[in-house]
C-alpha cells in the first residue's frame, strides 16, 4: 500500500512536470524573417523585468501561500552589482521571513524563519527565483519559436540544468509568462500582467506540485 502511494506520487510528479511547463504548438523561427526584416528579439536576449540594465530596486506587496502557511507583507528586490539580486520578504511590521540572494545559477539563503526553513522547499524556490530574476550571468543558448495559436514569441533558454521558456506578445516587447524547471519536481509558471508603461504591476508565481503561490503587486520600481 505504501509503495502504491509512492508510485502514484511519482507518476503525478512525472506527469505534471512533463506536461505543464513546455508551451505547446511551437514552430522554430529564424533570426531573419522571410521578408528580410529582423525579428524584434532576433538574438533571443530580450531583458526580462529584473535584468533590464537600468533596474536598481523594486518594492512589492506580497502574499505567499504554501501548505498551511499564509504569509503576507512586502518583497524588496535589489540588484547587487556583479553578483545578482537580493530578495527580502518581510511581514507588514518589518519582521523578515526570508532574505536570499541569487549568485549566478544558485540561491544563497542569508536568513529564513524556522517554519519555512526546509531544504526541499528551498530547492524548489531556488528554481523559482532564478527563473523570476533571470540570471545575470551564465551562457544561454537561445532558440526562438512562434506559438501557433497565439502568435506569441517564445524563447527557450538553458543555463545548466535550468530550462526556461520566456513567452512574449507577438511584437516581442511585453513579457507575458516565464515557464521553467530544473527537474520534474519543480516546474514553475510565472505570469506578468497589469502592465503600466513597461512594468508589470502583477506577478504571480505558481508551483503546482507543492501548492505554492506567490503573488506580487508592484509598489515602486527604480
Amino acid at each position: 500500500m505504501r509503495y502504491l502511494f509512492l508510485i502514484s506520487g511519482l507518476i503525478t510528479i512525472l506527469l505534471t512536470g512533463c506536461q505543464s511547463v513546455k508551451p505547446r504548438h511551437l514552430s522554430p523561427i529564424a533570426a531573419q524573417q522571410s521578408n528580410g526584416t529582423s525579428l524584434p528579439t532576433a538574438n533571443c536576449q530580450l531583458p526580462t523585468l529584473f535584468s533590464s540594465p537600468t533596474f536598481e530596486k523594486a518594492l512589492f506587496k506580497a502574499s505567499l501561500d504554501i501548505g498551511k502557511h499564509h504569509l503576507t507583507g512586502l518583497v524588496f528586490v535589489k540588484a547587487i552589482p556583479d553578483t545578482g539580486y537580493r530578495v527580502v520578504f518581510s511581514n507588514e511590521f518589518g519582521m523578515t521571513y526570508f532574505d536570499v540572494e541569487t549568485r549566478e545559477t544558485r540561491l544563497q539563503i542569508n536568513y529564513c524563519f524556522e517554519p519555512l526553513n526546509k531544504k526541499m522547499l528551498w530547492k524548489i524556490l531556488e528554481t523559482d527565483f532564478l527563473l523570476l530574476l533571470d540570471a545575470k550571468k551564465g551562457s544561454f543558448d537561445g532558440e526562438c519559436f512562434v506559438q501557433g495559436t497565439t502568435n506569441y514569441l517564445v524563447y527557450k533558454r538553458k543555463a545548466g540544468n535550468l530550462k526556461r521558456w520566456d513567452i512574449y506578445n507577438p511584437t516581442g516587447d511585453t513579457l507575458l509568462e516565464i515557464r521553467g524547471k530544473r527537474s520534474v519536481a519543480d516546474p514553475a509558471l510565472i505570469s506578468f500582467t497589469n502592465y503600466r508603461d513597461t512594468s508589470p504591476f502583477r506577478i504571480t508565481l505558481v508551483n503546482d506540485i507543492i501548492k505554492l503561490k506567490l503573488s506580487l503587486s508592484l509598489i515602486s520600481i527604480n
Partner: peptide
C-alpha cells in the same frame, strides 16, 4: 485592493508574535 482575506494568527507565527 478591494479584496478581503481573513486568517488565523496561528497560520503565521511571525505575525502572531509581532
Amino acid at each position: 485592493e478591494g479584496e478581503v482575506k481573513s486568517f488565523n494568527t496561528q497560520s503565521n507565527k511571525v505575525f502572531s508574535e509581532v
